[in-house]
Design a binder for these strands. Structure first.
Lengths: 257, 257
DNA sequence: CGTACCTTTGATAGAGTTCAAGAACGGTGG
DNA sequence: CCACCGTTCTTGAACTCTATCAAAGGTACG
């Protein structure tokens, strides 16, 4: 039972090259290069040409470990860096004024977190690790350089598209379509990272899936059971094996043209 | 009855200073300065310091008129510019693969449109004018300059926050809370532009409000009637006069702490 | 003045929530 | 290694909210 998460938002700054790993509070800080990172293909540098990649790769980023259940950053915290997930899994949540909480996203390796702070200088969401994770801390100041700027635009643009997808999901889809869309989306993202498209471990609980999809946890559970009965997938707690991807797609677009 | 909208996505480029207004097809193009624009306070330059504003203001932007019912840009069109609304009102819509359509936003003077194309180089949404409107066309290439870059980040960041707000609205709120939130949001945006916070004209129909809020048009209509009965507002077709803003807020956060 | 579109209102039905209780799982300590 | 506890998941039953279907009333515009 994790106690209240320790203050994980202690200031973390880039440290000079040549330093070995250093621990500060419960946060392990170690220098990292893009050029030796196996996420080059899906992370920030993706899309840059060779020369630009070289420059980005030369830059040194601070790395930070976040244990399962710990908070990478709290809403309200001042914004000065964005984060690239190296490994692990995060959920992003917003807390409304009246206390209601909603999960606004799940994020895996290669995805960029913390963009929500750019507008106001203050983060608007909580980011909690759903398994032991590691992120690169990229100071916002690094993005002065034009080629990286452009890259940042792309990343933000991708985020805008993602949000739009969630909006249409929540606005137009019925429960079973939402869960089908959710599973297909996960499948696709796992595939892009070299994992199985059809067999994976859900890192989040039913309640969190429900919150994300605008459904109650019971509805999510029932839908899993129904999908199982219908032979679309095998599900056992958090372990999922999709058996019929076209079937899920058909569910998602019931009257597809 | 507007026939199918004429091709409003004809290429439009900045034209040299000193040229008078020029008409190209049904699109009127005229040069415009930020420094003489009365939207300085809410548009792109907002937040820049004096010197930066000067530079931005010196830049020349193409202006384009869009008649009610016409499409400013179609999904699938190549991305090369973003648009700042000078006057008028737009709706943004996404069309899903199976033909379902959803309104993803309403946009008024000073707001920036077309950011959705940055990631892929292709626009993902349709932008339709709900009244005769005018926009500034700002070529994406203009954003090389660092101070403007930063400004673009802020604008995109604001958009991310807005999307998040819509996500929580669609994910956690009940019908009456959604409509209350929608009206309060409109009220606030009108206020920021110097209009009445409590009395305004809805430019969109019930169906479009419903699509945006994830509700049927009948539910929207019924809620308007109910709010009217409850003395929260007067509504007569598209004319709305809010009588009890705190009452609407209370509806929005029913069990507020 | 007529027609097409939009809005309102009613009745019905269905999807999903809520409440509730039991089952399965995972971690901890003896 | 096993028993225990808290958490998470599943499943059932009743209810609520919202969608859907339907029809009539308004409004705008040609």
């Amino acid at each position: 039972m994790p106690a209240t998460a320790p203050a994980a938002d202690a200031p973390v700054r880039t440290i000079p090259l040549g330093n070995a790993a250093r621990t500060r509070g419960n946060v392990t800080v170690l220098p990292t290069h893009c050029s030796t990172c196996n996420l080059r293909g899906v992370c920030l540098p993706c899309g840059l040409d060779a020369a630009e990649q070289q420059r980005v790769g030369d830059a040194v980023y601070t790395r930070r470990r976040v244990k399962q259940g710990d908070t990478l950053l709290h809403a309200g915290t001042g914004f000065d860096s964005i984060y690239a997930v190296r490994s692990g899994f995060f959920k992003a949540t917003v807390v409304l004024e009246d206390g209601r909480e909603q999960v606004t996203g799940f994020h895996m390796a290669g995805e960029v977190l913390g963009l929500d702070g750019i507008a106001t200088g203050r983060h608007a969401i909580d980011l909690v690790a759903l398994e032991d994770s590691e992120v690169c801390v990229i100071p916002y100041a690094n993005f002065e350089e034009p080629s990286l700027q452009r890259q940042l635009h792309k990343v933000m643009g991708r985020e805008l598209l993602r949000d739009q997808g969630v909006m249409t999901l929540l606005g137009t889809m019925k429960a079973e379509e939402r869960l089908a869309a959710f599973l297909l989306n996960l499948s696709q993202r796992f595939t892009a990272r070299g994992f199985s498209p059809s067999e994976f471990h859900l890192r989040m609980k039913r309640e969190e899936i429900g919150s994300y999809l605008g459904l109650s946890l019971e509805t999510v559970s029932r839908l899993f059971s129904r999908f199982h009965e219908d032979g679309l997938l095998n599900v056992q707690q958090k372990h999922v094996r999709i058996l019929d991807i076209p079937g899920l797609k058909a569910l998602m677009y019931p009257v597809a043209a």
